[in-house]
């Protein structure tokens, strides 16, 4: 069943087994197309999909932090005004090419590697990768040793340095464990997209595309096939799920 709907604020939730294709026009020239396959709640995720993200740094606006704010709000991340120890799941980075002087702005977060070093080094198996490629921390068995933070080439992880309060019911987080971007796994499991991607679209930048890297018909696959995308630290051969254009 394919259902097309135009909705500005909220997409209609269709039967769980249905394939939802929603085309949303939010501004002239910005056209979003989202194909999401919401799996039934009682079925395990499979390796038939691999979730990924493509970031077009040319569309990413310098100074815009819509993705960061959306992530913080979505996952209940609060700042204690201690930047060195505050948790950051996503951050904005401004770069200058030392050769050409070209300025680039991009969001940095967990790259959801196919071969994640954090998973390799975790002594208890708390650092784990789901079948669909999302890398998570099982905070139930995380002992807070921080070896994954030593191993991550992207500094994607944060340690909960202080007591966490007012957690979201879908994003449990607590002191003494390590955390990072979950690719908004609670939304993805319901056929949704990560909060940062939606916020980027809502801010009319459209610099982030989320989708299934294994589906050749997905937006992200088509865009990657057409214009390509690079991995950060490709030399490490981690096969990241997050790709960048324009760097």
């Amino acid at each position: 069943m394919i259902e097309k709907t135009i909705n500005f604020s909220r997409r209609v939730f269709v039967e769980k087994t249905a394939t939802v294709a929603a085309a949303v026009t939010i501004a002239p020239g910005v056209f979003l197309h989202q194909v999401a396959q919401a799996k039934p709640a009682d079925q395990a995720v499979t390796s038939a999909v691999r979730w990924g993200m493509l970031i077009d740094t040319n569309k990413c606006a310098t100074g815009c932090t819509a993705c960061v704010s959306a992530c913080n709000e979505e996952n209940g991340i609060q700042s204690h005004d201690r930047p060195a120890t505050d948790q950051q799941w996503i951050r904005k980075v401004k770069l200058r090419d030392t050769q050409t002087g070209h300025i680039t702005s991009l969001p940095m977060m967990c790259q959801h590697c196919e071969k994640p070093p954090c998973v390799d080094v975790c002594p208890t198996g708390a650092s784990m990768k789901r079948e669909d490629g999302i890398v998570l921390v099982d905070k139930h068995i995380c002992i807070g040793c921080r070896y994954c933070m030593m191993a991550c080439p992207y500094k994607a992880r944060s340690f909960a340095h202080e007591t966490v309060t007012d957690q979201k019911d879908y994003a449990p987080r607590g002191k003494g464990t390590v955390e990072a971007c979950t690719l908004c796994v609670h939304r993805v499991d319901e056929g949704g997209t990560p909060a940062c991607v939606e916020a980027c679209n809502a801010a009319e930048h459209g610099a982030m595309i989320f989708g299934d890297l294994k589906d050749p018909e997905s937006n992200i696959s088509k865009e990657l096939e057409k214009h390509g995308g690079t991995q950060l630290r490709a030399d490490l051969r981690l096969n990241t799920g997050v790709r960048y254009q324009g760097i």
Partner: peptide, 9 residues
């Protein structure tokens, strides 16, 4: 090959 101009992390 890049110089970091701004980062919160």
């Amino acid at each position: 090959g890049m110089e970091v101009l701004e980062s919160t992390f």
